[in-house]
Each structure stands twice: as C-alpha cells, then as structure tokens.
C-alpha cells in the first residue's frame, strides 16, 4: 500500500535566515508515515518538530526535497487544498485557532470552506462533536470552554472535514493535566477509528502512547523507533533535553546499584514485578 505521507530528503530554512550561514531548521529529513499509524515526534524547543509538522500539510514548503501526501506533492499548488483536507492540524494555542463565536459554527467553518452542502453539515458536525465528547455543547461560546475543551473543539473542526491524518502540533502543551489527558485520549480513540495520528510533543509520557516515536534534535531526526523498543532505553532521551519516565529512571538506577533486574522492562507493572522478585529472594 502507498504510504500516507512521504518526506523525501527535505531541507528547510525560514526566509530571512542568512543563506550562507547555513542555519537550517530541518536537515535532510527522510520519513514515511503509513496509513493508520500512531506516531509521536518529540524534541526540545527549537528541535524543528513544529516546522516539520507544518511541512506535512503544505503550510510551509521544503526548500529542498519533497513532501507527498497520498501521492500528491505539496509543491503542487493546485493540490494544496486537497492535501489540507487530508491532513488536519491542531495547533498549540487553544485560543488562536477557533474562528467562530459558537461551538457548532466553528466546526462548520472547515465544512463551509470545503463547500459541503448545508444538508450534509448537520450530520457531520454532530458526529465530529460526539467523537471528541462535546455533544450537546453546540451553542456554547468558545470563550467559556476550558482549555482542554477548546482543543477538543479544534479536533472536532478538523475531524468534520474527514481527514486521513490528524497532526497535533504541541496541542497539549498549554493544557492542565486533565486537559492533556482528555486530548490524548481522544487522539487514541481517533486512531482506533482508523485515522493516522501524528502527535508532536515534548512530553515523553505522551510520546510513549504512540506506536512509534521519532526523536528530533537541532533539525535532524535522531531516532525513529517503535515505542516498545525505545521505552526501555528512554534514559537516552536526556541527552536531547527530554524528560525520562520515572520508572525507567528508577530501573536504570537500580541496575546501576547492582540489582538483579531484567535489563529491559516494558512498563511500570513489570518493574514492580522485578523489584518484588529481587526483594523476595534470600
């Protein structure tokens, strides 16, 4: 099957950056996203992860190389609108991506842009709101929603356009823990419904919810591994200024102190099991 998104040898630098200084925001990126995948991209601030996200739906165009969505190139201006329908995006600041003054009007915004007949809209709006858990809030003013609800509204707006891919561009970084959790849960739910999810974050905890983790640093892809392979080795994330899940940190420290634990663990439960086993031995 054809990959959903292909990033081929992409280099990018922002306009105004001195060309000769060679300061690239992205360097030689090669990535493939398959249909139905749940991928996270992590990196510290300035690692280029958000820039990469914006290349995926043609908000930015590569300086060198090519980005293809389902066979359509973002370099081809006439395909750009179809690409943006296929690749929906939720941004970081909940307040700055809601256009309309009520919840349902905002979900309708994308549909209006697509020229969807009004008779179809009602159904699509209702389904999108239901999928993100905002049913019945149609007439609410965005101003009165919590941060997490606003981001779910943004997700609904994207979802109504029936995209194939949803990119969450640090969509949880401004939310409180409950909001973060709600948005991540909705993302996981949409993945189960068959959407390709690309979650950009600087939280390792969130990143490991995905099936595959891409680590970025200074405009380059440092790692691209299945989640369960990277997880036990997550201590290495420290070198790129990223946080390590505490159970992994503990596991490493205990190993360092000579505890007879298994060299890799798959999760908290396994570490508990291992600690218990080594303490019960006499």
């Amino acid at each position: 099957m054809e990959p959903m998104i292909q990033v081929v040898d992409v280099w990018f630098r922002y306009q105004g950056e001195n060309e000769s200084s060679g300061k690239w925001a992205l360097k030689k990126i090669n990535l493939t996203f398959r249909t139905g995948e749940y991928v996270s991209i992590i990196g510290a601030n300035g690692s280029g992860k958000s820039t990469l996200a914006r290349l995926l739906n043609g908000l930015l165009l590569p300086v060198r190389g090519e980005v293809k969505v389902g066979g359509l190139s973002t370099a081809n201006e006439s395909d750009l609108w179809e690409i943006r329908r296929r690749v929906g995006m939720v941004f970081q600041n909940p307040d700055n991506q809601i256009v309309a003054t009520t919840v349902e009007d905002d979900v309708a915004f994308g549909l209006e842009n697509l020229g969807v007949p009004r008779s179809e809209m009602k159904d699509r709006i209702e389904r999108a709101l239901a999928a993100v858990g905002l049913s019945g809030m149609n007439a609410r003013e965005p101003h009165h929603l919590s941060g997490g609800q606003k981001q779910r509204l943004a997700l609904a707006g994207v979802l109504a356009m029936s995209p194939d891919v949803i990119v969450l561009d640090e969509a949880t970084s401004m939310l409180d823990p409950q909001g973060k959790n709600d948005v991540s849960q909705v993302a996981a739910e949409l993945h189960r419904m068959g959407k390709t999810i690309i979650h950009i974050t600087h939280s390792a905890r969130e990143a490991f919810r995905a099936e595959r983790v891409i680590v970025m640093n200074q405009g380059e892809v440092k790692l691209d591994l299945p989640s369960e392979v990277l997880y036990p080795k997550a201590v290495m994330l420290k070198q790129w200024g990223l946080a390590v899940p505490p159970e992994i940190e503990l596991h490493q420290r205990l190993l360092g102190k000579g505890w007879p634990l298994s060299p890799t663990i798959s999760g908290k439960e396994e570490l508990v099991e291992e600690i218990w086993r080594s303490l019960s031995e006499i």
């Binding site: 205990l254 908290k268 303490l279």
Partner: peptide, 25 residues
C-alpha cells in the same frame, strides 16, 4: 502512585509518604 503499585506486592509495604525518585531509590 508507583509506591502504591509496589505495595500491592511488597510485604511489609513501603511507607507511602515517598514523593521523589531519590527517596524511593
């Protein structure tokens, strides 16, 4: 929360007023 998880197995349990990784270690 991790200590609570451990205490389901450990006997005797660890004190539950452990809040940092260093303390737990």
């Amino acid at each position: 929360r991790f200590v609570q998880l451990l205490n389901r197995k450990l006997d005797p349990p660890l004190p539950e007023d452990v809040f940092t990784l260093d303390e737990l270690e």
